[in-house]
Design a protein around this nucleic acid. Structure first.
Lengths: 174, 174
DNA sequence: CTATGTTGGTTGTAGCGACAACACATGCCG
DNA sequence: CGGCATGTGTTGTCGCTACAACCAACATAG
């Protein structure tokens, strides 16, 4: 327990303050775009997106909560609203009658398909298109390193990318 | 208005998903550390820290709200709580009797001094110490680029670094 | 010196997320 | 089969933030 602060250098401090600002502003910006264009919160969109990528478009509540970094009560509330809006349905599992399976409805699927393009466009506008290809590589490595501390269990990481990994080039960035 | 999604490449998608995870987890992690060690929310700490750096340890509410990226109502509520806890005081400005000046109390100052070291240690543990010096430079440039879209007015950026800029090296990163 | 518009802050109201308490199913042990 | 610990979701309660309404102080015009 040394009380020695080991203060940050000028460069470290500046990089940190900027990262802090990004971490503060980015979620709000994404939320705003989705709210405006799709009447969905960022988290609601995430739930629908995860379901859309899952086999049978179905996931257990507990698994869905873990992969979206939410507590089970939070997911339960959100799922209630999304169910009321017709985007998903919940049924008891027959294998384990404690579990609840959430399934994306056809309408929910259409909602995701309609929402994704503008969301991706926003991601490009705010981040990807502002960076050089080298910076994208750097960002990937940096974020991976930071996630080593933030998410050691790797619960949020890369369950299954939407695109097939076949076209990945040989660059071993990680 | 092309509906062409311009989907993300494999590398772009991976870097984006990781950044998204960081932006999701980092604020929560900071909040948790401060709540645990200092019984302060991240935003409360930010308010106290900004005041501690200001001349006379005093700022106008409107300026404080802008520099902490908060709405005025939010700051007003938070200031009420912090005032009740003895960390700051609010007085009407004599120059402009519409304005309210928030001043850090001696107790508030001691709170910041006591809290900052562990907070910096957490920042090191989660981010800075996990990156090479080159990666810190990369992160700085990347975050700066992204902030160009997120915060074009530059309201959150570098009002006045805590350390004097004298020891800044000649590297023109911006 | 009033009348009007603008700026600066505070106080209600509504919605969302965290935490705790609760209900229900399962597994295990005797 | 009965009983308790564990796993899985749902339902209350509280605190915080956004938004809107409101109040007070300045600024300017006539």
């Amino acid at each position: 327990m040394t009380d020695d602060p080991r203060w940050l250098s000028t460069h470290e401090l500046q990089a940190w303050m900027r990262l802090e600002a990004v971490a503060e502003l980015l979620p709000a910006a994404l939320d705003q775009q989705l709210q405006r264009d799709a009447d969905l919160s960022h988290y609601e969109y995430l739930v629908l997106a995860k379901l859309s990528e899952a086999p049978e478009r179905t996931l257990r509540m507990s698994g869905l909560a873990a992969s979206t970094n939410a507590t089970l009560p939070r997911l339960s509330h959100v799922a209630s609203r999304l169910e009321a809006r017709g985007y998903l349905t919940r049924v008891r599992s027959e294998d384990d009658r404690r579990a609840t399976l959430a399934t994306l409805t056809e309408e929910g699927w259409r909602k995701v398909v309609a929402t994704a393009p503008t969301h991706v466009a926003e991601v490009r506008r705010l981040v990807v298109d502002r960076l050089t290809p080298e910076q994208v590589e750097h960002l990937d490595a940096i974020a991976l390193a930071v996630l080593g501390a933030l998410d050691p269990e790797n619960r949020l990481e890369a369950q299954n990318p939407v695109v097939s990994p076949d076209d990945a080039c040989g660059n071993a960035a990680g």
